[in-house]
Design a protein around this nucleic acid. Structure first.
Ligand SMILES: [Zn+2]
Ligand SMILES: [Zn+2]
Ligand SMILES: [Zn+2]
Ligand SMILES: [Zn+2]
Lengths: 132, 132
DNA sequence: ATAACGTTTGTTATAATATAACATATTTGA
DNA sequence: TCAAATATGTTATATTATAACAAACGTTAT
């Protein structure tokens, strides 16, 4: 079992950085930021990222190959994720909408496939960027 | 304007391959498949892919870095895409569900952001794979 | 304690995915 | 017909991600 309320050293370091960040972080940018802490190789980052995703602590923004901290509680262990993404400033916001989440979690494919998980990414221009 | 009902040579070659494929194709697998036709470099593939996506002829499955032909008509120029993905056999099926599409197209972020586009990916085990 | 097991780490190398930059060619359309 | 836009060919490089292996660490059961 994925026994882990407690994070390992590298996992904690990577999570800290992602949580402190204002926006999504890329794996190699995380790597450059932790070299002072003795983490030197991509593997170390990707391994931590994989575990953090499993635990639901972070999510991967697939359209950007970048990672954000989970700010929601609806998305139990990353089974139901939704994001709002600004195409101008790259801001990402996790959408926590019970109705949306329920609607999609209950959605079933006409062809009989039962879904275990979904990821939804909305794109647009955020308020801040619209002012320009 | 991106005026183009007619595809260029490379675009047509790439689209043909994607349309004939049973599942999603990766860029480099497309490349290997068209080297006999004189296409030798990744750029040529990626350029064609970009245009085909713009035209709505194909979609990118973000979670797989792979490309499928559009089988729907609801997703006008790729503004509203939804897929069902089998985690076992990698099968991808474009979901064409008017209610779902309307629901999501009408969805607005609480924080006031107006969405122009979305991409939704559902994951599960397909019927065929369940039999095993 | 200590052996056994699973997990995490460190490390080197390499694979897979994608873009930059620049020179030419082709198509379009005023 | 000539300028603009689009598409192509090509070489090089950047970015993202995994393979493979050895060592250390943390549990837990004997
Ligand atoms: Zn979350
Ligand atoms: Zn913005
Ligand atoms: Zn489509
Ligand atoms: Zn399947």
């Amino acid at each position: 079992m994925a026994r882990a309320q407690t994070l390992s050293r590298n996992q904690q370091i990577v999570l800290d950085i992602i949580e402190k960040a204002k926006g999504p972080l890329k794996a190699y940018s995380i790597l450059f930021n932790v070299q002072k802490k003795g983490i030197n190789a991509p593997q170390q980052i990707y391994r931590a990222l994989d575990k953090l995703i499993e635990m639901g602590k972070i999510h991967k923004i697939e359209s950007k190959n970048a990672f954000v901290a989970c700010r929601s509680s609806d998305c139990e262990i990353s089974k139901a994720t939704a994001f709002s993404i600004c195409e101008s400033c790259e801001m990402v916001d996790e959408i926590s909408d019970t109705k949306l989440s329920k609607y999609l979690s209950g959605f079933n494919h006409k062809k009989g496939m039962k879904f275990k998980r979904f990821n939804l990414e909305f794109f647009g221009i955020c308020k801040k960027c619209k002012k320009d």
